[in-house]
Structures are given as structure tokens and as C-alpha cells.
């Protein structure tokens, strides 16, 4: 009950002035604990032009426990699992680092910052992290390919469905659209 109050407040604040390039909706009107966020890939990053779905789940004892943030859209990133779960490794969301005074807004801004500047020292995908460190051009190409493959259409939040349909339809056209994106 108490958390509900804070959450509705944060939701109102966040909807009124969302972080740059984001729009926020509720997964269902009756449940303020699950937010759907549409995030535009930050300009200047490898993800520019992409549109990503983020799911923010606020636990019942939020803000004492950290929210869980996952990508609903697949993304090629050292700190996001390269699968349909889209789990994010974000320092301030780790239980041992979570501060109850942190707001969702800050979390979202941190996620966006992570797209601008990945953190290869604390990776979830060490292969991608290595690539990011060793071969930035290759990393950028791969990231953009993912953007073109998964993050161009309208955002869907049922991550499984999104992953499935995107994977099915996208595998063939991935290279072609990737080339187009690079040209533009």
C-alpha cells in the first residue's frame, strides 16, 4: 500500500517529464507495478534509430527492493543478456547496491547512459564485451545489425513473442537492412 503511493507518484512524475527519448505506459491500467517504456536509441550511439522496449517491474516492497528492468527488444550489448530475457546488469539495481531513495527515473536514465557508454568491465555477455574493447568497429556493426533486425518496427512488450517473431522474420533480411542502415 505504502509503496503503491510512491509508485503512483513516480509514475505521474515520470509521465509528466520522462527521461529523454522515453515514453512510459502501464502494462495494465490496474497494476502500477509493471511499466512499459519505449526507448529511442540515443543519438550518436550504435543504437541510434532503434526503438527499444523496456519492462520495469517494481517489487511489492519497492522501494526497499530494487526494480527489475529488462529489455523487451533484443539488443547487442555487453551488459544485456543476448537472449529473449533481456536482463540488464546495472550497478545501481544490484540488491547490494540498491538505495531505497533511488527513483525509477534515475534507473531509466542509467539504462540510457548504458546504451551511450557500455560498461565492458561488468559484462553479462563477455564475448560482446571483449569485442567492444578489442574491435569497436565490429561491435558497432553487430549492434546496428541487431537494431535493424529487432528494433525498427513497433515495440512489442511480450518479450517472448517479440523475440520469436523478430528472430523468425529478421534472420533473412538482417544483412540487407543492416547495409541500408549503414548507408544512411
Amino acid at each position: 500500500m505504502a509503496s503503491q503511493k510512491r509508485i503512483s507518484k513516480e509514475l505521474a512524475d515520470c509521465s509528466a517529464s520522462p527521461p529523454a527519448g522515453m515514453s512510459i505506459t502501464l502494462a495494465s491500467d490496474s497494476d502500477v507495478h509493471k511499466w512499459h517504456i519505449t526507448l529511442d536509441g540515443p543519438v550518436g550511439s550504435a543504437y541510434a534509430g532503434g526503438r527499444f522496449g523496456l519492462i520495469v517491474s517494481l517489487p511489492t516492497d519497492y522501494p526497499f527492493k530494487p526494480p527489475v528492468v529488462t529489455f523487451a527488444t533484443r539488443i547487442y550489448h555487453p551488459n544485456v543478456t543476448n537472449d529473449a530475457t533481456g536482463a540488464i546488469c546495472l550497478g545501481l539495481l544490484k540488491p547490494e547496491q540498491w538505495k531505497p531513495s533511488t527513483r525509477v527515473q534515475s534507473v531509466l536514465e542509467a539504462v540510457r547512459a548504458l546504451l551511450v557508454e557500455p560498461n565492458p568491465d561488468d559484462p553479462l555477455e563477455s564475448r560482446i564485451a571483449d569485442e567492444y574493447r578489442a574491435n569497436r568497429a565490429e561491435f558497432n556493426r553487430n549492434a546496428r545489425a541487431y537494431v535493424n533486425k529487432y528494433a525498427t518496427g513497433p515495440v512489442t512488450f511480450s518479450s517472448a513473442a517479440a523475440a520469436g517473431s523478430a528472430a523468425g522474420s529478421g534472420s533473412g533480411s538482417g544483412d540487407a537492412t543492416g547495409g541500408k542502415a549503414q548507408g544512411s
Binding site: 505504502a2 509503496s3 510512491r6 522501494p63 531505497p100 531513495s101
Partner: peptide
């Protein structure tokens, strides 16, 4: 409205 300094950083009330 009430003063922001009266607001608990945890529950935001």
C-alpha cells in the same frame, strides 16, 4: 503543495 524538504526520500510523502 508542501515543502520538498518535508518529503521522505523513501516513501516520497
Amino acid at each position: 503543495p508542501y515543502d520538498e524538504t518535508l518529503q521522505c526520500p523513501i516513501c516520497r510523502t
